[in-house]
Simulated assay, not measured.
Amino acid sequence: MALVGDGGFLYACGELATAAQERLPVTVVLVDDGGYGMLRYDFTHRDEEPLGCDLGSPDFVALARSFGVLARRVTVGELGPAMADGLASGGPSLLVLEAAFTPPLTTSPRWYRAQG
């Protein structure tokens, strides 16, 4: 099981090829918020205009399928059963969850500066 954001995933999406080739039993949950959500949060938390945070996203489901990886879009409500299906498949799978979450306070090293 792996949980990744869309921005970070794009740095190494070719790893899907390895997962497919080796038939690795990993289910990837990709949270798609259209960019670098943590950086966007840092900007907005400081009442600044976010710069360089929004990304043009590919069709992640089609990308995964092009490597032969099972993939589908899911809602938060569908996530549990979809994760169980992915893990039960015995091979790689990708679940794309379109959502924007507020990151927990401890995940960004810059947040302590914004508290003042």
Rank of each mutant, 00 (worst) to 15 (best):
G80S: 10
R73L: 14
V96G: 03
E78D: 02
E98Q: 08
S57N: 15
F101Q: 06
V74K: 15
P104S: 01
L51F: 15
V69P: 06
F101I: 08
G91M: 09
G56L: 15
S66D: 07
G80I: 12
F60D: 03
S89P: 09
P103Q: 03
E78V: 02
V96W: 05
A71P: 05
D85R: 15
D59S: 13
F101R: 09
E98R: 09
S57V: 08
F60W: 12
L94G: 00
L79R: 02
V76C: 14
G90S: 08
V74D: 08
G86C: 02
G86V: 01
L94S: 03
V76A: 15
E98W: 10
C53W: 02
A64Y: 09
L51R: 13
E98D: 13
P92E: 10
T75P: 05
V69A: 05
L63W: 12
G90L: 12
C53D: 00
A62M: 06
F67C: 06
A82H: 00
G77T: 13
L55V: 04
S66W: 13
D54W: 01
F101P: 05
A62T: 11
L63G: 08
L55A: 15
D59N: 15
T75L: 15
A71W: 02
L79E: 01
A82L: 03
A100I: 01
L97Q: 01
A82G: 04
P50Y: 06
M83S: 03
P81R: 15
A64C: 13
L87Y: 09
G90M: 08
A62Q: 07
A84L: 14
D59H: 14
A84D: 08
P50C: 10
V69M: 12
R73W: 13
G77E: 02
D85F: 01
P92K: 01
G86W: 01
L97C: 02
T102R: 14
A71C: 10
L63I: 15
E98F: 12
P92D: 10
R73F: 11
G77M: 10
L87V: 03
V69N: 08
E78Y: 04
V76E: 03
L63S: 03
A62H: 07
F101D: 00
P92Y: 04
D59L: 08
D54E: 12
T75V: 07
L70R: 13
P50N: 06
V74A: 14
G86I: 00
A64L: 06
G68V: 14
E78Q: 15
G91Y: 10
G68T: 14
